[in-house]
Design a protein around this nucleic acid. Structure first.
Lengths: 193, 193
DNA sequence: TTTTAACTGACGAACGTTCGGAAGGGGGAT
DNA sequence: ATCCCCCTTCCGAACGTTCGTCAGTTAAAA
């Protein structure tokens, strides 16, 4: 129970203030214990951080895989747009995505390699999951096949990142403006011959 | 001379390790002085940081304004694509853009408002500079005007952010892949039927 | 009785910051 | 030339905090 709460609080603090900006004392305070008690469950700060990391990346991957599995029968237009919306909702709803975004962009220097291993694993997996979906849609002539499935997927992930950026610092208004514009133009390009 | 060097070193340290991850001692070490000497030139760490901030945002704005002024006579296709390439070069060349990206995404919490004032000023200015260019191109029938200049610009800035992301953690190979794919699809959507 | 989970207390290290003073140069006045 | 004073630049020493971590203790649960 306490273990769970420590991880939950740590997740949100790391997401909000980064690794350096989060102290063991802050985490412990919010949990309602003394900072030394955290050492009952974790070897140290790094151990706690990497443990949260591992959870978050596994969870994010599971969520995206589930989403794809559930929605892959949809028309590609709905599928891709929902994919974007899905991330937006996830970001608002739980701290996982916020944490994941922040520490993917700026991991603590001394843990760079370990974090980036997770990051690249995640990105490659998502691309691998998405390409076949686009390929099928092209074969079914739902979208122009002159672009190439790989290229279309890479550009789509670009749109997604552009939306992540507005999630991070733009606020809801800017985010919606961008979501509308980016998707509109992307789909326009994808549906043209 | 020392003043200039302090700011230069601080810029790069902040860009690389963030606000919390950069200590006065580290900066001083790299300059070749003791940390106390920095207080000859700055009231404190925040003062130094905000001073660098101010320089960086002014500089970034000047660079983008100059670019637009110099290239606005080009066909819109070349103009926009060069705009993307230009940022890529800037990012590689000087630490300004790296700093600017990092602290735009994750400013130190206690300076959030002051930093974000700079950020939004910058973003709005860039959008204001870009919209008229797109409008003219639409009037001249270089691109489809069914989209709306505002929307096309917002989507373009989305493409730019997607490229920023790959600058930050993707490395040259991923960056080029994305630049190619994102631009290809964006331009496909923008070009006339 | 052993184990577990939380505590108190304390540690050395690093942090940003302050103060006082040393070193050196420039410009007048003697 | 010499002396004096001011100003700038830098540094040694130290301050009060906060940091992550370790050791030992206590009280309840198993």
């Amino acid at each position: 129970m306490t273990l769970y709460k420590i991880k939950e609080v740590a997740l949100n603090r790391f997401a909000e203030n980064g690794y350096d900006g989060t102290s063991m004392a802050h985490i412990a305070d919010e949990v309602g214990i003394k900072k030394q008690s955290i050492y009952t469950y974790f070897k140290g700060k790094d151990d706690l951080f990497l443990d949260v990391c591992s959870d978050v990346f596994a969870n994010e991957l599971k969520i995206v895989a589930d989403f794809i599995e559930c929605n892959k029968k949809l028309p590609i237009e709905s599928f891709l747009f929902n994919f974007l919306l899905h991330y937006k909702e996830q970001y608002d709803k739980n701290g996982h995505t916020k944490f994941w975004l922040r520490i993917s962009f700026f991991p603590p220097t001394h843990l760079y390699n370990q974090v980036m291993k997770y990051v690249y694993e995640y990105l490659d997996k998502v691309e691998d999951l998405l390409v076949p979906i686009v390929e099928v849609a092209m074969m079914e002539n739902q979208i122009s096949s002159s672009i190439g499935a790989k290229r279309a997927t890479v550009a789509f992930l670009g749109v997604l990142d552009g939306i992540f950026v507005e999630m991070l610092y733009g606020g809801p208004e800017r985010l919606n403006k961008r979501l509308d514009a980016s998707w509109h133009l992307y789909w326009l390009g994808l549906s043209k011959d």
